[in-house]
Design a protein around this nucleic acid. Structure first.
Lengths: 146, 146
DNA sequence: TTTTTATGTGCAACTCAGTTGCGAAAAGAG
DNA sequence: CTCTTTTCGCAACTGAGTTGCACATAAAAA
């Protein structure tokens, strides 16, 4: 879980000049361990009952977003989903995929979707967000599973 | 406001076989009069103080979505935004544009973004949602205005 | 190491979009 | 006009996220 330096919680905190506290490390490790964006509730559940207060998790995520370590990936079911920023460069566009069967969401950083460089109908686009819905590889192979 | 038949509230209700009540007509007319998706709060404000209860607006929107008359365009600031379905065909992909300066959102139905027909990395995509952020035409012309 | 100080954390209470249950009202059928 | 079904309004609730404040602690200074 601490193979590459940029995938180590303490290293990330240090290079972002953020205080390294137990709650922050725990939140960061939850995001590192996940293969997709997480909500506050999912992070709290992953850390377990001895983890930080949910307000603390919200504030930690807020500070991570401000520091550029974490990004607000998308909103679903009225809940914000957070992902590590290093999973894909800031200005590059990557789609988020949600499986309609198993409900899991993951980001596809290797997929590069073009964003219009010139204005479209007079609208100057500076940021793009793409959400895909459909069937993930495992649900396609086992249609009735899960 | 009632120029084209498909843009007339009563006609829309009749062809969708929905009871035509004052609250339904008022909600539909708000959406018809708007150039972009609206929240329940915006619809209620547009109708005015003598309009229906907010719970009623939610239920009306819910029934409109079920009937295919209205679509949930996107979620912003924790609020669902609704738009008329006839503004762009159901399965075609159109981006929603939000201006970072004036905050207004509109959909660009004339812009057709390609959706992958074949699976991408094993993920079979059946629906796409695209959000653009940037400067709208009027804010580009008057940078400090509004 | 100890002290100091700025920052982070936990708790309780709050906000606000959206939901639910239920009795009253009104639309459409006969 | 009457009956049945659907819709509406109200009040109370839910759940994600926020705020204020006292306490705790990481990092800086002594």
């Amino acid at each position: 879980m601490t193979a590459r330096p940029e995938h180590d919680a303490v290293t990330i905190l240090q290079s972002a000049r953020l205080r390294r506290t137990a709650p922050r490390i725990a939140v960061l490790e939850s995001l590192l361990a996940s293969d997709g964006p997480l909500t506050q509730e999912q992070i709290t559940a992953h850390i377990g009952p001895r983890g930080p207060n949910r307000v603390t998790v919200y504030r930690i995520l807020e500070s991570f977003v401000a520091a550029g370590v974490v990004r607000q990936a998308f909103l679903r079911d009225r809940a914000q989903h957070y992902e590590l920023a290093h999973c894909c460069p800031r200005h590059r566009v990557h789609p988020h995929f949600t499986c309609t069967q198993c409900g899991k969401t993951c980001c596809l950083p290797e997929v590069d979707l073009p964003m219009p460089a010139a204005p479209v109908n007079g609208f100057l686009v500076s940021r793009q967000r793409v959400e895909w819905e459909g069937l993930c590889p495992s649900c396609r192979q086992s249609p009735a599973a899960d």
